[in-house]
Design a protein around this nucleic acid. Structure first.
Length: 614
RNA sequence: GGCGCCGUAGCUCAACUGGAUAGAGUACCUGACUACGAAUCAGGCGGUUGAAGGUUCGAAUCCUUCCGGUGUCACCA
């Protein structure tokens, strides 16, 4: 808040001159004056009351008088309880707008020379993306944009979980039941196509498992292992994993396939590559619709063996220790965590070992200063452990690690459960919001003047604007309830509401034509609506900074709404193009241009596009 | 059970990180298009901030204890 710091400094000076107390900038609290009181900005002077032993009214009066005399921007003051309210001159407002209009990249920081890698999306290749991925992607993408706006060089990446037992299940089912069908031959999007075989595998497995449960062997196991009073259904639900590993024929085949893959068997690898490629082609379509791209990709098939070297080094450094059976552990009990295995007794690595190795690899690849992992909060503990280990290994990037943790999404009906078929598919959802936007737009008939291609693009922007805003306005760490009906709302606190403010501004700009606005800053009759807008515009750089420090796009989302709301009110109450004087007109056009600019920058940071008309 | 996160209007979310009488949207009523685009604006209704204590000029925010929800505690990822 460049423009407010001058006021702050005046206040510090006032306190120093009047009372001989040295304050530094962080001790001073300045707020916008609440509507019900007289003034523009307010200092809280309670802290001084205590140290000075004077009444708040006396202190406020002394400071207020000093400020009015010594700062030309301040033209009035009053003190209520411990609050010193100040009124600013009209020049302050016009000068503020003047200087903001001259800044080329208002709210955006210059490059700071630091690199940050942001990881998000990170799907498995055995099924399509769903609503949970969308929250993840929006958060990761938005944080990337926000960090960029804060001066960082950002490298967007994802880990693609392209190996393991899950994809083998899809592969096996396709081999057995696919009859050489392909996404092309069936006209099914590749990720959905492969996902269907994953589901098919689970169905076949359940068929097999059900037979097993009524077989003599199954009954014997139930009788032998059941807990006191446990019924058969509950028992077999819990036993499923063990069944898959120890009894299932299909399970054995899938595991066999995984072993063949690990042994680099040519046919298996070829099948794996073919099916994964189908999935990637499908993902690309979804990413494209969401408007996201990546600068770098890490495939788990390349990284799953990384980290073994780190284990050796860790042992030498005394960070890890080896058990007699050969397994390797780290003990984090002194910092309130547990013992954690980092290498199995058979010498294979576990998940966290891969993560250690991958982090080191990324540092080697890019020399990054910071790394942000966008991963749901169910892995909070995992990342606590990972970061602690990297710290103990003295990794140079260890202080720059951040887990962008976010709450899972619930539906109004409860949790999303793939087994119960309540998972909201990403592609379906996107299609739905665009369809809704199309319907809403048809009622209005505004965009018919556009070409067919422009219409499609506009409807996509509006539909996705609604969806994205709905998700990103909630603070990341909070669990959110996703009501499909509300997500396509386009009125009230929604993406389209804010887009509409921008569109109105563009309409004004189109109509204002090339009329120069040199007299804009001669305007003297600043009104409340204009002041409110200017105050909010002044906050923008701070909001961007805070969003970057907190890794919190929701603050930008809420800010955008507040600004759009102020603009809508301004637009409604105040005449712009046919204003009462030419200075007023010029000033209001200039003000509108800045609001539009800030809104579009803010939305860009949220990953939401602005339509020119709607 | 241990540890973590979350409880704010009927519902979905805010609250400038400890500041004035806790704000928006939605839903439900009521008004405003012969003024720059009504995806808009204005008004009404709606609260013991899960509960009880504590800290201080001042608490939704910090501390303690409960209650509810959720996650995690694998030689799974």
């Amino acid at each position: 808040m460049l423009y407010l710091t001058t006021i702050k400094h005046s206040y510090i000076k006032a306190v120093q001159t009047a009372f001989g107390i040295e304050l530094n900038e962080n001790d001073v609290l300045i707020n916008e004056t609440r509507k019900e009181f007289d003034g523009d900005y307010t200092f809280v002077i309670f802290p001084l009351v205590k140290t000075l032993g004077k009444s708040p009214e006396d202190i406020g009066k002394t400071l207020g008088e000093w400020l009015v005399t010594n700062d030309e921007n301040i033209i009035g003051h009053n003190t209520i309880k411990g609050f010193l309210n100040l009124t600013l001159s009209f020049q302050f407002w016009t000068e503020t707008i003047k200087s903001i209009s001259k800044v080329s990249n208002y709210g955006i920081s210059a490059p700071n020379g630091k690199k940050v890698m942001v990881e998000f999306a990170s799907p498995n290749t055995n099924k399509p993306l769903h609503l949970g991925h969308i929250r993840n992607i929006l958060l990761g993408w938005s944080c990337s944009k926000i960090l960029q706006a804060n001066g960082y060089e950002v490298i967007k990446t994802q880990v693609i979980n392209d190996r393991g037992i899950a994809i083998c299940k899809s592969m096996l089912a396709w081999q057995k039941f696919g009859n050489d069908a392909t996404p092309t031959s069936t006209q099914i999007k590749g990720d959905h196509f492969v996902g269907e075989y994953y589901v098919r595998f689970e169905q076949e497995l359940m068929k097999e498992y059900n037979e097993f449960q009524s077989s003599a062997e199954g009954i014997a196991i139930y009788d032998g292992l059941k807990k006191e009073g446990q019924d058969q259904t509950t028992f077999f639900k819990e036993y499923k994993n063990k069944y898959f590993n120890d009894h299932s024929a299909l399970g054995a085949e899938a595991k066999q396939m995984l072993l063949k893959w690990e042994a680099k068997d040519a046919d298996t690898v070829a099948l794996w590559q073919k099916m994964n490629q189908w999935v990637y082609d499908g993902f690309d379509v979804t990413y494209d619709k969401l408007g996201v791209t990546f600068d770098s990709l890490y495939y788990e098939s390349d990284t799953y063996l990384l980290g073994k070297k780190a284990v050796d080094i860790g042992i030498k450094k005394g960070v890890f220790y080896q058990e007699p059976d050969g397994s390797v552990w780290v003990n984090l009990e002194d910092v309130g965590m547990d013992r954690k295995i980092v290498m199995r007794s058979d010498g294979t690595s576990v998940y966290i070992t891969q993560d250690i190795g991958t982090a080191q690899q990324r540092y080697a690849d890019y020399g990054i200063d910071k790394m942000v992992y966008t991963v749901a909060d169910e892995q909070d503990y995992h990342f606590k452990v990972l970061f602690e280990i990297l710290k103990r290994l003295d990794e140079p990037f260890a202080d720059g690690l951040y887990h962008l943790s976010y709450g899972m999404i619930d539906l109004p009906t409860g949790k999303m459960k793939s087994r119960e078929g309540t998972v909201v598919d990403a592609d379906d959802l996107i299609a739905e919001v665009i369809a809704e936007a199309t319907e809403m737009s048809a009622e209005r008939g505004e965009i018919v003047t556009l070409t067919e291609a422009e219409q499609i693009n506009t409807l996509r922007k509006i539909g996705l604007g609604a969806l994205k805003y709905f998700i990103i306005k909630v603070q990341p760490k909070k669990r959110m309830i996703f009501d499909p009906k509300e997500s396509v709302d386009m009125q009230g606190q929604t993406g389209p509401y804010i887009q509409n403010a921008y569109v109105r501004i563009q309409s004004i700009i189109r109509k204002a034509g090339s009329e120069a606005s040199s007299d804009a800053y001669l305007y003297v009759d600043i009104n409340e609506q204009e002041k409110t807008l200017i105050k909010h515009i002044m906050n923008f750089p701070d909001i961007v900074k805070e969003a970057g420090e907190q890794y919190d796009p929701s603050s930008i989302a809420n800010y955008s709404y507040a600004l759009a709301k102020d603009f809508h009110r301004f637009y409604h109450d105040v005449r712009i193009l046919n204003a009462e004087t030419s200075e007023a007109k010029s000033f209001r056009i200039q003000l509108s241009i800045i609001v539009g600019d800030v809104l579009s920058k803010a939305f860009d940071m949220l990953g939401i596009e602005m339509p020119e008309r709607m």
